[in-house]
Amino acid sequence: MALLSVDELSVTFGGVHGRKESTAVDGVSFDVDQGQVVGLVGESGCGKSVTSLALMGLLPGKGVKLGGRADFDGNNLLTMSQRELREMRGKEIAMIFQDPLSSLNPVVPIGVQVTEILQRHRGLKGEPARKEAAHLLDRVGIPDPTRRLKEYPHQLSGGMRQRALIAMAVACAPRLLIADEPTTALDVTIQAQILELLKELVDEEGTALLMITHDLGVVAGLCDQVNVLYAGKVVESADRHELFAHPMHPYAHGLLESIPRLDAPRGEPLKPIRGSINDRIAWADGCAFAPRCDYYTIECLTGTPALTVPAAAGHQVRCVNPVREPVEIATLETPDVTATAHGGTSA
């Protein structure tokens, strides 16, 4: 069984005091195995960060409706009490946030922030805790760790702060690490260092890593399995080689076509995706991407398309008219549209 198994996770905000409800995550399912790197990719507003916050139990209790299951080692994270979650967070599941400056306490030295976790979860105190903290900082590549322990977050550079956060995250050898845009705030040369460090952790410790990012380049170098999100649903899920070689959902295909590549020949105009994320229809009425899609037909407006399994192993696509460039896949029959929701054709 997978270490983390997310099944039809949904997160809905609002709905109180007569406010309109808005669904940020709309039935997301994926698995993360031991030692595996799973990517959640999508643009802003697709629900990737909300998914990670829901898994960590960090969403506010009021005004948020959670649905589905998220089983970590057999226990549903969504129904755990705050007490149980506190026991779990930092020890079994740890998180690395995007902005290292605002996720560290500015008035507490780095050393205290690291030893706090060691004390809480591993019962280390005093000198042994300090030694262990220094060892952790050393491990993530911070030079002169004993001096750094006494320093405050503002005295560290951006890359160093992110390293300190990673040191805190791996302090208790968690089995699952959730990284929410861990390199977005960093420069490319520092990004390369941090990604290499994460790779090492996964290889050496067998930690499972859930990588949340908008950068397809980061995904290409790191993730084993990639889930592409659009408007709160997974629209394509595949092994990274498979995804980048044969993207089948028009959104994933369009994204890959639209980004300029450093190694591509110059001179050709980019092929952007039309419109913006605001041009979408409700999933209940059809495919949310249909208004921006080049491959769209009237069938796209008949209920939510199902996440179907095309030819290659583990490759799933939520699309009625997937992009089919590879020949071997084109021989397959068109997968049925299992219209689970009411299939109203709203134009």
């Binding site: 490319v188 380049g217 290409a220 170098g221 890959l256 590549r261 450093l262 190694d263």
Partner: peptide
């Protein structure tokens, strides 16, 4: 160093 640090969205090239 800068050029080699830029991730390229293609696993085959990356590897």
């Amino acid at each position: 160093a800068l050029m080699s640090a830029v991730p390229i969205p293609d696993p085959v090239v990356e590897e």
